[in-house]
Simulated assay, not measured.
Amino acid sequence: MTQRIVEKRGANHTLHIILTVCTCGIWAITGWPIAAAMGRKTVTRVPTYPQYTPQQQPAPPQQYGPPAQMPPPPQHRPTTGTGGQQAIIADELMKLAQLRDQGVISPAEFEAQKARLLGQ
């Protein structure tokens, strides 16, 4: 029987360099035109149209009438003692004066209501 002795050799650096240069050289020659062709942008011209201006749309018909005026909620009025009564009478007189100024009631009606409130 014969023995075979295998010596491990290092990498063949010369072959490696030659193949790398050839491969890079091929890509350098063919890669640039391919990349340029694939990266080329095409410009497409589209026709321009006149500026669009929306026309005034008519208002939609009103489906419901105006909302009804709700009376203000009643305010709590103190009724204890004479101070509370005086505040209520003063408030009523102010309301009657506003109605008189608006022309809802006549000055004579205002005077009559005032006399009734003051107990005269």
Rank of each mutant, 00 (worst) to 15 (best):
P67H: 08
V104S: 03
T14F: 11
T23F: 08
Y64V: 12
A11C: 01
Q102L: 13
A59R: 08
T30G: 11
Q55T: 12
T42V: 09
Q120Y: 12
W32N: 12
P73K: 00
I5K: 02
L96P: 03
L96R: 02
I26V: 11
E92F: 07
A108I: 12
Q86V: 15
E92K: 14
H76C: 06
Q51I: 15
A108H: 09
L15A: 09
Q69V: 13
V104A: 05
Q3G: 00
A97D: 09
P78V: 07
T30K: 10
P60D: 05
T30I: 15
Q3V: 10
Q86P: 13
G25Q: 08
T48E: 00
M70G: 08
Q57C: 01
P61Q: 01
P72F: 07
L93H: 01
R116V: 12
Q102I: 01
E109K: 12
C24W: 03
I18R: 04
G39S: 08
Q120D: 12
D91P: 07
K41N: 13
I89T: 13
G10Q: 01
T53E: 08
Q120H: 09
R4S: 02
K8W: 06
I5C: 00
K114M: 08
K114L: 09
Q62W: 01
P73M: 05
Y49S: 11
A59M: 09
N12T: 00
L19V: 13
G39L: 09
I34R: 02
E7Q: 06
G83M: 05
P67D: 04
A108Y: 06
V104E: 00
G83D: 13
E7S: 05
Q3D: 09
R116T: 10
G119M: 04
A28H: 01
V6T: 03
A87Y: 05
R40Q: 10
I34N: 08
I26G: 12
R9Y: 07
P54M: 01
E92P: 02
P61T: 03
Q55C: 00
T80M: 13
A59T: 08
Q69H: 11
T23K: 05
Q86N: 15
Y49D: 04
V46M: 05
A37W: 15
A11K: 06
G81D: 04
T53R: 11
G81N: 05
L117K: 06
L15I: 10
Q69C: 01
I5L: 03
I34T: 09
Y49I: 12
A90G: 07
R100D: 03
W32R: 14
T53I: 14
V21Y: 02
D101V: 05
A108S: 15
A108R: 14
P78N: 06
T80I: 11
I88S: 08
E7G: 00
R9Q: 11
L93Q: 11
V43D: 00
V6H: 03
N12M: 05
T14S: 01
H13L: 14
K95A: 11
Q86F: 07
Q85C: 06
M94P: 09
Y49R: 14
E111P: 04
M70E: 06
N12F: 08
T14C: 01
T48V: 07
N12R: 02
I29E: 00
Q3R: 09
R9S: 02
H16C: 06
